[in-house]
Design a protein around this nucleic acid. Structure first.
Lengths: 185, 185, 185, 185
DNA sequence: TTTTAACCGAGACGGTACGTCACGTCTTGTG
DNA sequence: CACAAGACGTGACGTACCGTCTCGGTTAAAA
């Protein structure tokens, strides 16, 4: 194969530097200058590709954090499968970095294009996951509810995304919706 | 010896200016200078009372954000009452101002005490509302789910908090949890 | 005797604090706030008496630095007496603090009254000294020349006001003027 | 790698603005912000090159203050030539701008290197002028005395540098030193 | 003594300038 | 010719003093 273009190499270096700094100091205190310096790139190179910090970080996270690997196999037990699924989704919640997510949410308000992209990243992943597991359900709605609950924990309550929480979510929100029709009425 | 007391008037003017700007431009683009100017105060006066932007915003929000109106009367029809309740909660979601909420969430990351206060303000309002309507339910959980769904709409999807959405929330999330023995089993 | 009025006590405390700080950090970095604090006075008390830093310092220096004590006795040897005189004048050159003098010179440009006072303090002392020693000479001119030379050393060249310098001043500037007439012409 | 060189143009604009303001309002009331604004530069650019106000002024003066015009021709009459010389020196006394000189003297206290330079500029000009006119005299001493007298008038007494003053200076200070064997002895 | 008025500490206040930092744009020379 | 290096204008940051202005507590003289 041909060697990758210089741009790609640069881009990767920048994104990796961004991820590293993101982890070290958080979104707020991460500066584009620092990213450029660490990547041995120049600020111009960064700004040539991204419109600002939020976009840069968005790309970085999309590429290096949202690694929702191959969905784990289903066991046949619906409840167990849902728990496994949620566990996977948690792991990929943009690295669970609240500051990063806030930064992105903020940036979305100024950049409609970014907004679309992030929504995609945040929701469609869940959407597809649910679609795979429950072909007949209202995937979009399940994805939205799940996403909302996870985000709320992360941003608002600050409580951990632990097994107990996931179980409650499955038992009181997700499963009831799937069993709804059988109940008669 | 007694010096002139810090004027409550000044403080209020500053906090109101902060709230206003927070709503207008969001946390990031709100500058302390602008707050001072609008409050006809000097930067020094601001910094004399608060250690920085985050603390200023924290106080402002603590004081001026938790204003729930009195709950409307219940009709006896549970579904209708829930819809009315959600409608009320929407109206008080900090004015549904996404910029302000983002600013708030951002400020929470810099001020743990504020974080507690805001969680209280955001959740306990819903908590009490549910408690009044459904004495036997898991109020905290209902409040968290509802809050999460509203926030998600506001910040992530950007879709409107319309009746259709509220109805879906009631029908697929809230009511199913109240029909506790879910028919079968 | 009656106890001194409170004001006088306060004034003295403030002036002494000013002198102390002047010596410790110099004119530029001495702040009125620091003077007040050290004197356990309030800024208002300082500003009640003086219009600003320069005036405060002017008073302080006039009172506590310009202590040209009683003129030393004349020996009869004119040259020796002049040297003694210059030595005394050097000692009283506002404590020889260049920064202080600069501050005063600067303040003089904004405050004509102060200007008069400082000129008085700087020049008339020398004037009188010369008048006592040389009743028939042009005292004002001698005073101006001497003052100028001392100031120049202090502010411009920064070289020490040592005996060699004083001797040269006496021998090449002062004495020639006194011997002028005898020479004929 | 090569970045854009710091533009000599920017630097010159800033220094000229500094000189202008120095002359207009004096060192103390000259602000870096004002300099930057007048130079159509930014504060950051100023601070990128100089560590503070003192250094900025230092450079400005170093570069733009030592401008003596060519000496006028001598007539052969020593007294007349001295008067002419003093007149020239007056004109070049940094424009006889007291505020500027005070600013300069102030800046010298914060920057030892500037101090050396300014002394050079202030004194060596006179030094050379005297050397040209009186090859055998103690030029440095004459220069210092002259400089001192001019400065004293400008800063301390505030009286004009008029012909009468210059004549007195020539007749009572300069000429007597040149008639080296002072008649008697 | 007791009142009563001046005085004074403490320090809040609106300002102005400081020096720093990061932003996003731009130019320049090197590999 | 793409890129590092980094200068530049911009604008907010948080700090330090400025000089003005209430406040109440404390004297010391008048009652």
């Amino acid at each position: 194969m041909a060697a990758r273009a210089r741009s790609e190499v640069r881009e990767e270096a920048i994104l990796l530097a961004a991820m590293a700094l993101l982890g070290e100091v958080g979104y707020d205190r991460m500066s584009v200058e620092a990213v450029a310096e660490r990547a041995k790139a120049s600020k111009a190179t960064v700004y040539r590709r991204w419109a600002g910090k939020a976009e840069l970080v968005a790309t970085a996270v999309r590429r290096y954090a949202g690694t929702t690997p191959e969905p784990r196999r289903r066991s046949g037990d619906l409840r167990a499968d849902l728990l496994t699924l949620l566990d996977d989704l948690c792991s990929s919640l943009l690295g669970q970095d609240a500051a990063l997510i806030l930064g992105l949410l903020g940036a979305m308000r100024h950049d409609a294009e970014l907004a679309r992209t992030v929504r995609q990243a945040v929701l469609s992943e869940k959407h597809h996951a649910f679609a795979a597991l429950l072909p007949d359900a209202d995937h979009a709605w399940l994805a939205e509810l799940t996403s909302a609950a996870l985000l709320s924990r992360l941003l608002v309550t600050g409580e951990p995304l632990d097994d107990e929480f996931l179980a409650k979510l499955v038992d009181t929100v997700l499963l009831p919706q799937l069993e709804e029709p059988p109940c008669g009425t």
